[in-house]
């Protein structure tokens, strides 16, 4: 199963390193990544493969959220199907 990890918030040094280190910690493989900075606003989107994940989905999502909060950014982990449903016919 694949999930979309979004990181949004104020830009600062090390956000990508932080998010990818967290993914690696739980055995989550990042298969695609894109990021943009608009003014000071940072938005990163990662497509992650969860098949080798060492914890359950909720634990991973919660941990990412908490780590994000400590960094002052919003991290959401969502099943890719919600985006596929909404934006593809």
């Amino acid at each position: 199963m694949k999930a979309v990890v979004t990181v949004t918030g104020k830009d600062r040094v090390g956000i990508i390193a932080m998010a990818s280190a967290e993914c690696a910690k739980y055995g989550v493989n990042i298969i695609d990544i894109s990021q943009t900075v608009m003014k000071e606003y940072f938005a990163m989107i990662m497509l992650a493969e969860l098949d080798g994940m060492t914890v359950d989905f909720a634990a991973f999502a919660d941990s990412m959220k908490l780590t994000g909060e400590a960094w002052g950014v919003d991290i959401r982990v969502m099943h890719e199907d919600i985006f596929n449903s909404m934006h593809k016919i």
């Binding site: 979309v4 949004t8 894109s34 938005a43 989107i45 919600i82 934006h87």
Partner: peptide, 16 residues
């Protein structure tokens, strides 16, 4: 990969 704008639109709809 999904379109970045689409993903951010969904996030905005839910969050804001």
């Amino acid at each position: 990969m999904l379109n970045t704008t689409d993903i951010l639109e969904t996030i905005r709809m839910i969050r804001d």
